[in-house]
Design a protein around this nucleic acid. Structure first.
Lengths: 112, 112
DNA sequence: CTAACGTACAACCTTGTGGTTGTACGAAGC
DNA sequence: GCTTCGTACAACCACAAGGTTGTACGTTAG
């Protein structure tokens, strides 16, 4: 999710298709890179749930999912409001009596 | 910014230091990786403005910047509310009369 | 003073990521 | 039916990113 938003081109694509749907090639025309590259970006965004593709004739119309953006907001809120506070206290207690935790509390690498 | 949040370990660090400040080695104890690796993550977060480091004796206390999270919210809102709407219309008009734009509207690769 | 701690940083390895080109294939257009 | 368009996908390349170990250095503890 944040990974998908980490790329400038992808953020731009999201912004564009939130305003109005576009075909993949219409999107490709907007950027100084190959069609295949843009196609990959769209695929990444689709996997992250930030856009949806819908076949329409021989075209593939891409639309932004505002819902996903709201989900991103939620994740930010979780970070900000110390959603981990409880877990932290448990960790702290464990750290005092036993050895420190040996795995990354959430996902080791990209996941949300 | 989103790039910094794209990594799970980093998101966790942010969550932790937003709850309460920690030294770098205290953070390092929490994860199944070397001290140097955690140090790098903290450096990335610091560059992105998501945390601040403050020397305190021989330690370096790390604190989360809630401000930065709010900035992230703002960026998401910009995406969601079609902040590009105006620019898009200009692009569309140009596309009809001349060739399509040849550079990525915002940053070509990571920047916000 | 010396040892240990907390940190910083460089070198290196491996994998992931963004980019390219080329090929393939169904859907429209003529 | 043949060509063109829009898309999908695989192979490949260069570089960034996350990880490791090793070294260095100021600060605190004995």
């Amino acid at each position: 999710m944040f990974h998908a938003l980490a790329d400038g081109t992808r953020r731009d694509i999201v912004a564009v298709v939130l305003v109005g749907e576009r075909s993949v090639s219409e999107l490709a025309d907007r950027y100084p890179m190959s069609f295949a590259a843009v196609q990959k970006h769209v695929a990444v965004l689709e996997r992250a749930g930030l856009v949806t593709k819908e076949r329409r004739g021989r075209e593939q119309r891409v639309r932004g999912r505002a819902e996903a953006l709201r989900e991103a907001h939620r994740l930010l809120d979780q970070l900000e409001l110390g959603w981990r506070a409880r877990v932290d206290r448990i960790d702290d207690l464990l750290a005092e009596t036993a050895e420190p935790p040996t795995e990354p509390p959430t996902e080791p690498r990209e996941g949300a």
